[in-house]
Write a protein that binds this DNA or RNA. Structure first.
Lengths: 227, 227, 227, 227
DNA sequence: CATGAATGAGTTTTCATTCAT
DNA sequence: CATGAATGAAAACTCATTCAT
């Protein structure tokens, strides 16, 4: 129990922060929402300032300008994404099970973080120019591929996976499915109804994805009971 | 010497361009580029006017305001896409071949129309609000589902397709892959290199996708020669 | 007598301009004042807009941004300066008289246009970066040198001018004197009183300058009656 | 172990720099650069703080505000200049030589202190309002005039100088040339090339200036060998 | 004495839209 | 129908200065 004057003081009177990391985190949190909702050009610095606990000026103090803030938001999103991938341990699982787990976990992770998906979609509209320029992000992309490479290697060694199974391709396939599921929900529902995005529909889609991914590389894979 | 009122009128007013449809088409063409490149909030009316052959005022004259223009752009690309889907005749093909053709054709169509993809992505960022409000677009979405339904029916009747094969789900699956292939090329390449988006990589991905789609519903499907 | 409706209309109701050149000239006039008084960073776009007849937006419409406006102001100043130099005809005068006239005329011109002097002083503080970048200004600097070259040539040919007389050096000498007279009046007066900048003082200084310039190149020159 | 209150106090507060004069000098040095480069309104307190060894707060602590700092900078450069003028002893020299030395020394001093020149130019743009308000500077201006008065008196007494030779006018003339040489180098070079500001050009100009000044007051003065 | 964090008030700049002709 | 000129409202961004520690 921390009852030191300092800590309680900070909480008691919320007039002044003097805690740069907390302030930065707060700004980033609000900015992530804002940019995810309205895009880079649509997002408003004023709106971010108003919803955060500090003045607009601090955004410039810490992030330089709108693009700097956007870039930081993007880095945060990517870091969180890769961190979540890193957390997942599949090294002890049987190859097929490992791949299944990676697939469904990704499905759930993407579905649980629509903001991240939107921000990546936005970044694609900008031709990934900010992502490309970020030195931070370039470093954190290998984990998931390494994991899939390990699973592939073990699967092939065990004679369970087809020879052409490829980690990068598998990651792409899984990502495509999971990403589109979140990113295009709005237009797909508007065009074809929300059958696939109801709770039931998502459960079914998740199972379909697993079957498709496994079926594409596991020799003789049969969906247990699809419906 | 033609001194008829009509001709002289034209000359007197200096109206060398009197074809409203051509003007509208020109504006739409430029606006499609602009919105696809910069998004709705990022797209500039000024920029559109400057690159088109007419003045800014005409944009307002024909499309009311920025949103109206955006909506028209959206309707335009949707119409073009659905029209291309309509053109494709698969009724005479064997179910498996028909499905394969639908898949690869979609892959090619999406890859050939990145502007369309970007606009849909943008529309999703706006929660499909303009798409939902457009009466025009709602009508255009039945064709592809009807075609897939026909293929599914025939496939199941022939004992070739699994019982759970579903036209909507198939369309969704095909779309997911083909859309993501274009929409996320920038960030995926930035993160993992452009292996999959090289010319070679795309040929391979296209074949993989066909195999995945067919493998997911065709009983006993085996990829002929995947690599 | 122009009594056409158009012209009088414009004058009568000052609500809308629709006369780009007049608007631009008006903005430039006010901006010249503003920048001459407060410098580039000290000058306020708002203030310029308020004092001109049009809205702030028009400044950006016609001049792009603050620097563009400043550059235009600078170009205007230089153009006026060179134009005034061009007007002066000394080709028919005897060399000594010609040089005397060029000198005193420059003295008067600089003294009559303190704004120009200030703007050039300001530009020097900016290391002439805008002047250097202006293609317009680069073209208008030869006239005065040409005139002085002609006077020097004739003076030397007549055996009146010393052999080392140099048009560029003469221009520099005259300029230094006349420029400093205006540009440093404030600090000089603050330090040493305004003896030299009183009306009498200026008359005397002007004559001194003429004597100094003539004395520096005319063989055997004697100031007639200095005081 | 020194546990005297004073020493421990210093350690406790973490004050590793306790020399106010050094701190002030450091701030002034950086501020002089800054204001000389960007002017009063263009100079940034932030930039000064960043380049100096202390924090922004100290600037306000020692100088009150931006204007106070600027005023101190101005006083500093003026003091340095007048001090250098004071150092120069010409009382023992023959009048003509004395005047020649004063002239060339001023030329060199100005050329060696472009920051001083720029600050005076800036101050002139502000109509010398800070200089006028400074009590410190008012006292520093007598020296040079006194020296020139002495030289003039001796020159006239010796029958060498013309009767109208005037110390203030001489100072003004010398200053004008030497000041302009530095202050307007940028625009003059941009307009007419850097002939006069090359190393060779400056040597020649310095000699010319001496000849001009001497020629203006010394009876029968002949430039020895002007080129 | 000293610092980094924080800010209000102002300044530049942008942009969809409308007006006079 | 068509245009260039014009704008208000809002957005990004800046900067001297002050505050809590």
């Amino acid at each position: 129990m921390d009852t030191s004057p300092k800590a309680s003081d900070k909480l008691r009177k919320g007039n002044w922060k003097q805690d740069p990391d907390a302030v930065k985190a707060d700004i980033l949190r609000v900015a992530t929402e804002e940019f995810a909702t309205y895009g880079l050009s649509g997002g408003r610095i004023d709106a971010i300032a108003k919803r955060s606990t500090v003045s607009k000026r601090m955004i410039y103090y810490y992030f330089g300008n709108k693009e700097g803030l956007y870039k930081s938001v993007l880095e945060g999103v990517y870091a969180a994404l890769r961190e979540s991938e890193e957390t997942l341990k599949v090294g002890d699982l049987e190859p097929t099970e490992a791949l299944a787990l990676l697939t469904t976990t990704t499905f759930d992770a993407y579905a649980a973080n629509p903001e991240f998906i939107r921000l990546i979609a936005i970044e694609n509209i900008h031709n990934a120019e900010y992502l490309s320029r970020s030195e931070v992000i370039q470093k954190l992309n290998k984990t998931i591929i390494d994991k899939l490479a390990d699973v592939c290697d073990r699967g092939k060694a065990a004679g369970q996976f087809r020879a052409f199974a490829d980690p990068l391709e598998l990651h792409w396939t899984i990502s495509a499915f999971c990403f589109y599921n979140v990113s295009n929900q709005a237009t797909f529902s508007a065009s074809f109804g929300d059958t696939l995005h109801s709770e039931q529909g998502q459960v079914r889609l998740r199972r379909r994805l697993r079957d498709i991914v496994l079926g594409s590389v596991v020799i003789g894979y049969r969906p247990e009971n699809s419906d």
